[in-house]
């Protein structure tokens, strides 16, 4: 039995996959805190789709795929910024238009010039077939991202919370904005290989949202998110070996399950906690016992 449970660790392939997933899970989770607070969830989705034309072009030209993906992601972000500032269309619609256009361009390119690049690899990821060179690319992206966040997290946090205040105390908001976008695009590229374009957004959103339900402190939120990101990625990759299913799918299903658990059971912001609180205060009101939510000044009849 134990032999069976340990069997994934006998395969070099699996060890590599678990290591890479955990690393990416951690980095994505770290960024997801900013993404959740800033309301940029859809940006993550959009960027992960928008990198496709860059990836296919890079493969065709024999360049590193991360470079192509990165350039194309930033290009998409610039397009969104331009259209949003110049037209009366809402941000969510602008994001939708730009990312579908980029994605369509990528799919068209691949269909016109079939090469050794598989569309499925981009869309669903293929962590088991990851090449050594790709792992190096990811390692570099991850460490740079972590370094930037470690050094500048206070600035980024202020930027997410109150850009005007950030500007007022003399921070360069434009640079912060572009930094965050760049980190997001870079991480999306790294995660692409692991879970695929469709599921990158989950890694960039779910851990942050889960942590947000569990705590009111940013430092703790970051730690919870990262622990969750690393653990779910490890376990997801491990489980996928046994159920013989898509690794990305397993990781994301696991993350969603953790989110749902937190949603119900979170001590202060959970559904059950607030339901109980609601019932208590209504009963208190009905029975005439002065309940906590009614301010003392208001009970005067």
């Amino acid at each position: 039995m134990i032999e069976y449970l340990l069997s994934p660790f006998h395969y070099d392939l699996m060890l590599k996959a678990m290591f890479v997933s955990a690393m990416i899970g951690g980095v994505c989770a770290c960024l997801s805190c900013f993404v959740t607070l800033k309301g940029w969830s859809l940006m993550g989705d959009a960027l992960s789709h928008a990198v496709v034309p860059g990836v296919s072009l890079a493969y065709m030209l024999g360049l590193p795929f991360a470079l192509g993906a990165f350039v194309s992601g930033i290009l998409a972000a610039l397009c969104m910024g331009f259209i949003k500032s110049r037209t009366r269309i809402r941000e969510d619609a602008v994001i939708g238009i730009v990312f579908t256009t980029f994605f369509a361009a990528g799919v068209l390119m691949i269909s016109l010039y079939p090469s050794n690049i598989k569309l499925n690899t981009i869309v669903f990821g293929n962590i088991l077939g990851i090449a050594a060179g790709d792992i190096w690319q990811m390692l570099i992206i991850s460490s740079v991202t972590m370094l930037v966040v470690a050094l500048k997290w206070r600035d980024l946090l202020l930027h997410s919370f109150d850009p005007n205040q950030a500007r007022a105390i003399g921070l360069n908001v434009g640079v912060l904005h572009v930094t965050l976008l760049t980190l997001l695009a870079a991480t999306a590229v790294a995660a692409l290989q692991a879970v695929g374009a469709c599921l990158v957004v989950a890694m960039l959103v779910t851990p942050g949202a889960t942590a947000y339900l569990l705590t009111d402190r940013f430092g703790r939120m970051m730690i919870i998110a990262m622990v969750m990101g690393v653990l779910t990625s490890l376990i997801g990759a491990y489980v996928s070996f046994f159920v013989n299913a898509s690794t990305g799918g397993c990781i994301v299903v696991l993350q969603t399950a953790v989110f749902l658990t937190a949603l119900m059971l979170a001590p202060k912001h959970g559904v059950i906690a607030s339901w109980l609180k609601g019932r208590a205060s209504v009963t208190a009101l009905m029975t005439g016992v002065p309940g906590e939510p009614v301010p003392s000044g208001a009970v005067m009849r």
Partner: peptide, 19 residues
């Protein structure tokens, strides 16, 4: 926030579908 919820729900379902 709503957009975050949407992102979580649809990726969760899509991943479930993939598995």
């Amino acid at each position: 926030k709503e957009d975050t919820v949407m992102g979580i729900v649809f990726t969760g379902l899509f991943a479930l579908g993939l598995v």
